[in-house]
Design a protein around this nucleic acid. Structure first.
Length: 542
DNA sequence: GGAGAGGCATC
DNA sequence: CTCGGAA
DNA sequence: TTCCGAGGATGCCTCTCC
């Protein structure tokens, strides 16, 4: 790959070309065609502009490539738009180049301290003022981290591979090991396939964690693994990757941010409990109550990314570390070894009290009883793992299958919101309410947009509009008349809903045409479920 | 010095 | 995190 | 199968405003 491309001269490629590409990608449905369009565009740009372009384009990459935490959201953009509309920014010259846009965002991201919001607003306004309406539209979507043009990690990687003339598998592997699209683009274009294949796992360079897929039930999970699975408790905490070399320990979150400073107690546990000179281990951090039972996820979150008062909170909310995989030990990557072998190595690497509870099962009854035990002890469920599977960084694999029981409630829809994107024109997000026996009215316990098919959304929209009471902004209030059966994983305490409760991971299972709103579940029932959860989990200290 | 808004991370 | 749609 | 985009609740952080 050469340097700049032909014909753009010293100014570089205008951002408007990138916007046109977005429009083209958005209008293209074929996957291969998208990859080709983007790949050729990147190739035409050359190294220096391709990296900013890929960072801007793929929404999420913007957060991962030197632009972590831009600090700009809907509100800030709105203000910048107003400023651009008022201002004389248009005098400042024509359409900005891709590089100019990228550099301005980099500057906006690095602004901090007093006056930084104003600085960000001015930077954005300066760019917006030089853009036409189409450019502005895509630019805003890039800022929000959601370009919605059907190109995210997967296709972006294929396009990078195409532009660099390397195997897409090399790019995908590199992404899994680096966790950063911009960095993959840089290496692919700079060093080619060798540069990508040469990337290795090494302490203090976190990799994307392997993810579990969903099992429909215990028996089918077992069947998918050939009749025999390893079972592990699925802990309700936060994923962590522990890196160690000598005395040095660093802890990375699921999205690879360094959370070491928030977790000094976990660092201590790792220091004393992990023995190899070098190690990269996978696990979960959980909050633990006085009785040794896991505390609600909400309680863990009071600790997880905290940077103030960490010392004081260590005493109030102690954490424990549970490890379940070994990724790298003493110079050796273990990701291609089978699960069974990795688990053996893990057991040699750390003390017993750091190991997640595990069993081997070859019958559905064993799976059921292990699941029952996990739930009784206050955990989220279990994960069934194929004994032979490799560790596949960054991929959701059926070698790991999560099994989480859920409950259901019958709730009334009391309001709905107009959807965006492919859901525009439909009421797609429903406010769910339980009956409040004290007032005789309905009290909201959460919202959901999940579970209906396109066809059902269409029909539900019509039904709800028939019950419409009032409308303000995107929200349409309706008379409670539709009852839906809602599945959820847990009842949480809510600081925002007047009911005091919120459902975690609520999704609609079916419409209960056979039920009247007067027959739906009550707030008392929800409180009962919450109390029941707390019997299995530890109770958070006040 | 505290409250509130906005943004980002976890699930 | 969950779910449905599309390739 | 894999990828994408529709959007959920929550808690902490930073910055601005009063």
């Amino acid at each position: 790959m050469g340097g700049g491309s032909l014909g753009q001269g010293i100014r570089g490629t205008p951002f408007s070309k990138l916007a046109s590409l977005c429009a083209e990608l958005e209008g293209t449905s074929g996957r291969r065609e998208k990859v080709r369009l983007l790949g050729e565009f990147l190739r035409g740009l050359g190294d220096r502009e391709a990296i900013p372009a890929i960072s801007l384009l793929s929404g999420r990459a913007l957060r991962g490539s030197g632009l972590r935490a831009l600090g700009v959201g809907f509100r800030t953009i709105q203000r910048a738009m107003e400023r651009a509309g008022r201002g004389q920014a248009a005098l400042l010259g024509g359409s900005p180049t891709i590089s100019e846009v990228f550099e301005a965002l980099r500057e906006a991201a690095s602004a901090s301290g007093e006056g930084s919001m104003g600085r960000r607003e001015r930077l954005l306004a300066g760019l917006l003022g030089r853009m036409g309406p189409i450019e502005r539209g895509y630019f805003v979507r890039m800022l929000l981290g959601e370009t919605r043009i059907g190109v995210v990690e997967g296709m972006a990687l294929e396009a990078i591979a195409l532009a660099a003339g390397v195997d897409a598998r090399a790019a995908k592997r590199a992404y899994a090991l680096l966790g950063d699209l911009g960095e993959v683009a840089r290496r692919a274009l700079g060093a080619g396939a060798e540069g990508l294949w040469g990337i290795d796992i090494t302490p203090f360079r976190p990799i994307l964690p392997m993810l579990a897929d969903v099992a429909s039930d215990p028996a089918s999970a077992l069947a998918e693994h050939g009749g025999k699975s390893a079972l592990e408790f699925k802990l309700d905490g936060a994923r962590v990757q522990i890196h160690k070399r000598g005395d040095a320990i660093r802890i990375y979150s699921r999205r690879l941010s360094d959370v070491t400073d928030s977790l000094p107690d976990v660092v201590d546990l790792a220091s004393s409990g992990i023995c190899p000179e070098e190690a990269v281990l996978d696990g979960e951090v959980v909050a633990i109550g006085g009785d040794g039972r896991p505390l609600p996820f909400q309680t863990l979150m009071e600790r997880f990314k905290r940077v103030h008062d960490v010392g004081r909170m260590i005493e109030r909310i102690p954490l424990r570390l549970f490890l379940f995989d070994a990724i790298f030990v003493n110079g050796q990557s273990l990701i291609d070894r089978p699960y069974e072998r990795r688990r053996e190595i893990l057991e040699e690497c750390c003390s017993r009290d750091l190991l997640v509870e595990r069993a081997i099962a070859s019958g559905a009854a064993e799976v059921e009883s292990f699941l029952k035990r996990a739930m009784e002890e206050g955990h989220e469920g279990i994960v069934a793992k194929s004994l032979h599977g490799p560790y596949s960084p960054g991929t959701r694999s059926r070698d790991w299958l999560k099994i989480k029981p859920s409950r259901t409630l019958d709730l009334a829809i009391v309001a709905a919101e107009w959807g965006h994107g492919r859901r525009s024109g439909w009421l797609s997000n429903y406010h769910l309410a339980a009956r409040d026996p004290r007032t005789g009215g309905f009290s909201i316990v959460g919202k959901t947009f999940k579970g209906l098919t396109d066809e059902e959304f269409e029909e539900m929209t019509k039904r709800l509009l028939g019950d419409r009471i009032s409308e303000s902004g995107r929200v349409v209030k309706v008379k409670p008349s539709v009852v839906v059966e809602v599945a959820f994983d847990e009842v949480q305490r809510s600081p925002v809903y007047a009911s005091g409760f919120a459902l975690r991971f609520a999704r609609i299972i079916r419409v209960r045409d056979d039920k009247d709103p007067s027959e739906c579940d009550t707030l008392d029932r929800i409180e009962e479920i919450y109390e029941e959860q707390l019997k299995r989990k530890g109770r958070p200290n006040p």
